Each structure stands twice: as C-alpha cells, then as structure tokens.
Amino acid sequence: MTLEFRTWLFGIVIILVIFLILVDISKVEEEIGIPEGRDSREGVVSSLQSKSSRDAAADRESTSRTGVSDSNSSIVPAAPEWRFNKDLSISIRERTMNISENLYRLLPSSPPLKKQHFKRCAIVGNSGILLNSGCGAEIDSHDFVIRCNLAPVEEYSRDVGLRTGLVTMNPSVVQRAFEDLVSEAWREKLLQRLRGLSGSVLWIPAFMSKGGEDRVECVNDLILKHHLDVQTAFPSLRLLHAVRGYWLTNKVLIKRPTTGLLMYTLATRFCDEIHLYGFWPFPQDQDGNPVKYHYYDSLTYEYTSQSSPHTMPLEFKTLSSLHQQGALKLHIGECDARL
C-alpha cells in the first residue's frame, strides 16, 4: 500500500468520524430543543431556563385554576387558609402516648434479670397434665422457676410447686381469672396472688397486643397503692417478633408464639439446663384419659383450630425434638415422689 493511498484512506476516515459527531450533536440539540445555529453550551442553558420558565408558568396557571399543582391534585385538597386544629392534635397525641404515669413509675431502670445466670431452670406450663403428677417438690428444686399467666399455686402446690422467680400476666388474665375486678372481693383475690410473688419478676406484656390497657392499669395501681414486693417488666412488641422470626428461620412455622414457647426462648439466655412441666396441648394423656386445658379451671380450647392464634401441637413437636436431642427436658406424667 502506497503512502499516497494510506493518506487518502486516513482522510476519508477522519471525515466520516467528524460527520458522525455532527449528526449526534444535531440529534441531541433537536431532543432538548436548541435552536439551529446557536452555540451548543449556550443553547443548553437557554433551553433549560426556558423549559423551567414554561413549567413554572404552567404550574402557576394550574394552581390559579385548581388551588393545587397538578402533581399533587389527587392528594392535597384545596384550602383557602391553613389553621391549626388543636383538638385533633391533642387527640392524636393521646392515642399514641399511651403510657400512664403508674406504668412509667413501674418501668425498671434496668432489666430485672440482667447479669443473672442459673444452672437449672423450670418452666411451668398450665396444662391439666400436671394434676396428680406430684411434681411440686421437683419443680421447686430448680434454681429458677418461671410460671405462666399468674396461675394459682397454693392449692395445687403438690403438683406444681410454690416457688416463683418470674411469672407472666397477660392482660386477659385479669378478665378471665379475676372477673375484670368487678368487685372488691375479686380485687382482694388478685391482691393476694400478687402478694404471694414476694420479690418475683412480674412480666406484663402490656405492649404486645391491642386492648387491655385498663386492666394493666388496675394491676399497676394495686402494686403501687399496696407497695407490693414485685419487680415489674414490660416487654417490647419487638421481642414477640424476634422470637417468632427465630423459629420461622429454623423452619418452625408457628403463628404467634405461646407464652410457654416465649418463656423457653427467653430462658435460653440465662439458663444452662431447662426443664419443662405442664406442656401438653392435647385433650387426652398417653393412656387416653381426659386432660384439662388448664389445671386450675374448666376452660376449654380447640388445639387444632385454624382460627387459633397459636400452633400448640407444632410447638410441642418442636420441643419434643429438642428433648430428644438433649437441648431441654420435657417432663410428662408423674414425678419422683422421693424429692
């Protein structure tokens, strides 16, 4: 290839490149509306300013007709004048700031079980499987005892024991077990049960479900008025979500964790060896004998109902698997009478 031919070919390539660049510039100018023959940079600035001015003018025209801009016309109503609605503001604040003075006074300054650790813990469920079990002494022999929903112990001590380190109290318990404190007699019955805790942690899930605020307030009032020796704890709703999330992550498809499963999960944080009593979500025992839902009342429950917020048989299956693996001890039936 001669030098003259290479020079000629190189010149053609240069011309094509310049042509393509000019075509691209022309297309860009056409897209953004730069008038033909003006400097590109000047045209861009001018075009953007012109477009901004046109948009502003259009917005002002639209606003003058409708009272709002087109972009917000579907969500912002026209209003001739804004005025502060004090009554509505107070109403919203009262609905969101639902912590009473009594509850605030009972909030612990630090977690009641902070820096505490126990070798052997017992978690006592409320199934009727405990009746005639004779497990009371064995339960009381543990270093720490957790009970559920303020279940009575004195009249059932042979089967369920007496010691309590922590006891839960769902707000619904006040309604179901103490008749919503409709009389002084029921208030006194609840008061006696709270006095029996003598230094225990009273776990009140006041924030875990809607409703029940009045019942929680009644309990708080009794504690303060009578200077009861209890350590109150008010768990966050986030704990419920965290516990459920933990089990779901481990492929245990529970709905809302029962109090028993919640307490077991909690106990794994401060107990080495965990023993479960009164966990039996079935209407009959292993020999076919009827078993009460609660050992202390006549309440009935449909364990397999789709409308139930809990999945008790599934939880029990999970706990049984952990029992077989040695992670916990599930006690069913009679206990050793020698203890």
Rank of each mutant, 00 (worst) to 15 (best):
K251M: 10
F270E: 06
K225W: 01
D229G: 05
D214W: 08
I254N: 03
N250L: 08
R238G: 02
P235C: 03
M208L: 06
I223D: 04
T232N: 07
P281T: 01
E217Y: 04
Y246E: 06
G260R: 02
K255H: 08
G212Q: 12
V219M: 12
Q231T: 14
I274W: 00
L248Y: 09
G212R: 06
D221F: 13
H275P: 02
Q231A: 03
K255V: 09
E217G: 01
W247M: 11
G260I: 03
H241D: 09
S209P: 00
F279R: 10
D214I: 09
S236W: 03
T258E: 00
Q284L: 08
D272C: 00
P235W: 13
T265P: 05
E213R: 13
E273K: 14
C218F: 07
H241I: 11
Q286R: 14
T268K: 13
F270D: 00
D229K: 09
P235Q: 07
T258L: 00
V230S: 09
R269W: 06
T249K: 13
Q284T: 15
L224G: 01
P235R: 13
V243F: 10
G245D: 10
V252S: 01
V230Q: 05
Y264S: 03
N220D: 14
Y246W: 13
D287G: 15
P281L: 01
D229W: 09
T249R: 15
H241S: 06
L239G: 06
P281K: 03
T265I: 03
R215S: 14
Y246S: 14
A233N: 07
W247C: 10
P283H: 03
K251R: 09
P257N: 08
N250Q: 12
P235V: 03
P235K: 04
T249L: 14
N220F: 02
L228Q: 02
F234V: 04
R244M: 10
A267W: 09
Q286S: 12
T268E: 15
C218E: 13
T249V: 00
V216C: 13
E273P: 02
S209E: 07
Y246C: 02
V216E: 00
T258Q: 04
D229P: 06
Y246G: 12
W247Q: 05
L239A: 04
G212T: 08
Y264G: 01
L261V: 10
H226T: 09
K251H: 11
